[in-house]
Amino acid sequence: MIETAEHDGIAVLTLHHGPVNALDLELLTAVPEALAAVAEARAVVLTGSGRSFSAGVDLKRIADGGPRYVEKFLPALHLATLTLFEHPRPVVAAVNGHALAGGCVLAAACDLRLMSGGTIGLTELAAGVPFPTVPLEIMRHAVGPALDALVLDPGRLTPDQAAAIGLVHELVEPDRLLTAALRRAEGLCVAPADVYALAKRQLRRPARERMDAARPSDDPEVLKLWSSERTGRTLRDYLASLRRSK
């Protein structure tokens, strides 16, 4: 589900879960476990297998699983993205293909983002589901004022468009992506580990404070909307439209 390799003390985590690395309960549960297993690595590179980094949440599982599945899924989504966002060591995303919705959030949770192809963006509203608080604040930290347009006008950005708003830091040819990501990760290891970890905590403190303030009021409403019968119908219609457009 998540393959781990080591390059001179840098851990490479590769999402390997179905054709597009869709985020389901099992993959999200595996993310914090994989990060804990490489806690002593000098840095982490996160990438995907196949043609996608991650095409986002497995919407069919949401539609079919109903409230019982969503009640487990949303906390797992929060924990996976927050654990990646707050990992104390340097984390570089090597975005090898499409990074959509939750996949975009996973990339945004990393310290630096390199991209070699595909599209990236937030498609939650197009699919008819609200934005959970933790992913929203991670995205706000990553792109700042560009967030409103990303959320409210859901579309897919090309790598060039993503770089223009700071969502991607470097564009790389596919055959150079991993090498470039390892190089950037190595560059982030210049500072002592405790110094780097403190800087990350300081930089992420406003985002964490917004999460903590918003979640008690926002999360019940998010859960209710994700679990509703209307959302199930909307997701099925959205998935059908995607199939027709292929």
Rank of each mutant, 00 (worst) to 15 (best):
M1A: 15
D8H: 12
A11V: 01
H17C: 08
N21C: 07
A22I: 02
D24M: 03
L25N: 08
L25H: 11
E26G: 01
L28G: 00
L28H: 01
V31H: 04
V31T: 06
E33M: 08
A34D: 03
A37G: 15
A39Y: 04
A41K: 00
A41D: 02
A43K: 00
A43V: 00
V44Q: 07
L46K: 04
L46R: 03
S49D: 10
G50C: 10
G50P: 10
F53K: 03
S54K: 03
S54V: 05
A55F: 05
K60H: 09
I62R: 02
A63R: 00
A63W: 00
A63D: 00
D64V: 07
G65V: 06
G65S: 13
G65M: 05
G66K: 09
R68V: 14
Y69T: 05
K72Q: 15
F73D: 00
P75V: 04
L79H: 14
F85P: 12
P88Q: 09
R89P: 00
R89H: 14
P90A: 09
A93K: 02
G97S: 09
L100N: 08
G103W: 01
C104T: 08
C104S: 14
A109F: 06
L112R: 15
L112N: 02
L114D: 02
L114G: 00
M115Q: 14
M115I: 08
M115T: 08
S116P: 06
G117P: 10
G117T: 10
G117L: 09
G118F: 08
G121L: 06
L122S: 14
L122E: 13
E124M: 14
L125G: 02
A126H: 11
A127N: 13
V129Y: 08
V129H: 07
P130L: 08
T133C: 14
P135K: 12
P135T: 11
E137V: 09
I138E: 05
I138P: 13
R140H: 14
A142S: 14
V143P: 01
V143K: 05
P145S: 11
A149M: 05
V151E: 12
V151F: 07
D153R: 15
P154Q: 10
L157N: 06
T158W: 04
P159S: 12
Q161H: 07
A162S: 12
A162N: 07
A163T: 12
G166T: 04
L167Q: 00
E173F: 05
A180F: 04
A181M: 02
A181C: 04
R183L: 10
R184W: 09
V190C: 07
A193Y: 02
A193C: 05
L198M: 09
K200A: 00
R201A: 11
Q202N: 10
Q202G: 01
Q202E: 13
L203E: 13
L203Y: 03
L203F: 02
R204N: 13
R204A: 10
A207M: 07
R208Q: 13
D212P: 03
R215H: 08
D219I: 03
K224V: 03
L225E: 15
L225A: 13
L225G: 00
S227T: 08
G232C: 06
T234L: 13
L235K: 01
L235I: 10
D237W: 01
L239Q: 15
L239S: 05
L239N: 07
R243P: 03
R244T: 06
R244W: 02
K246Q: 15
